[in-house]
Design a protein around this nucleic acid. Sequence first.
DNA 1: TCTATATTGATAACCGTTATCAATTTAAAA
DNA 2: TTTTAAATTGATAACGGTTATCAATATAGA
Lengths: 142, 142
Amino acid sequence: MLNEFDLFKDFLRQQNLRWTPQRKMILEVFLSFEGHVEIESLKNKIRLHQPDLGIATLYRTLKLLTDCGLVEAHSFQNGKKTYERMFHVRHHDHLICTCCGETIEFEHPLIEKYQLQICEQYGFTLKNHKMELFGICRNCLK
Amino acid sequence: MLNEFDLFKDFLRQQNLRWTPQRKMILEVFLSFEGHVEIESLKNKIRLHQPDLGIATLYRTLKLLTDCGLVEAHSFQNGKKTYERMFHVRHHDHLICTCCGETIEFEHPLIEKYQLQICEQYGFTLKNHKMELFGICRNCLK
DNA sequence: TCTATATTGATAACCGTTATCAATTTAAAA
DNA sequence: TTTTAAATTGATAACGGTTATCAATATAGA
Ligand SMILES: [Mn+2]
Ligand SMILES: [Mn+2]
Ligand SMILES: [Zn+2]
Ligand SMILES: [Zn+2]
């Protein structure tokens, strides 16, 4: 059964890149998170085990993981990127609370279908999409 | 018949802010563009008439226009914001060509409806949303 | 082991945007 | 009109997340 480590190793080999302790550690710690992770959180947790990991290596590795499709990078409102596991995770979109920052994931097959129809209508080849609904979550309304 | 100038003036008065030649010029030049405008484009065109306009004033005024609802700010892929006229313009979403940067505007009533349904389901109060479909446009396919 | 080359960490640079601040302008009151 | 308090302006420094640079080091195949 393939897992993220094997896929990442294969990707690196195909690109003539190398499997290193830093890359292994970063992937391990990344997978220990749920949902959307910020660089800052990754850095803090990784440095418990490997205090001298350079921030550039972290960014570079996240870039590689994104390139090989294991991770998706989001750029939400505040300028910071977040990273999300993509392997064996269904596509979904996001509700984002502008008050507390919480994100709720959802999917709606008909919306996806209509998106494709629209692209067809304009002769547009869809590669990916982003749908983000901003508002106030249930908790913040109380 | 109300226009953007009147609305902006009213907004400023309500907030105890002032109607200045710079703000008038910026709005005029902004309205002379179609579609999505970058700060850079605005700056260049404005400086033909008013070479000493400060970049900070431009950002500040766009912020005010956004706050009063006449303008919408987008943050697409490349880190730069673009600004779009909102007054007497129907809500719409965007197809964005990752090759040439062209944007195509579309609307789909059913998608809008399903978005509201989803929010209802999660007890989420929708304030606004962003739907961007990334891909290759008709021209870039040739 | 040897060797070419990929990787690393430190840190400078980048770049769009925002904050700071003294000089100036606005608009309402006197 | 003059006065006055407060908003505005332009120059420029600062910000902050991210990326580029580079010399030292690690990797992996020959
Ligand atoms: Mn979707
Ligand atoms: Mn829409
Ligand atoms: Zn919330
Ligand atoms: Zn195109």
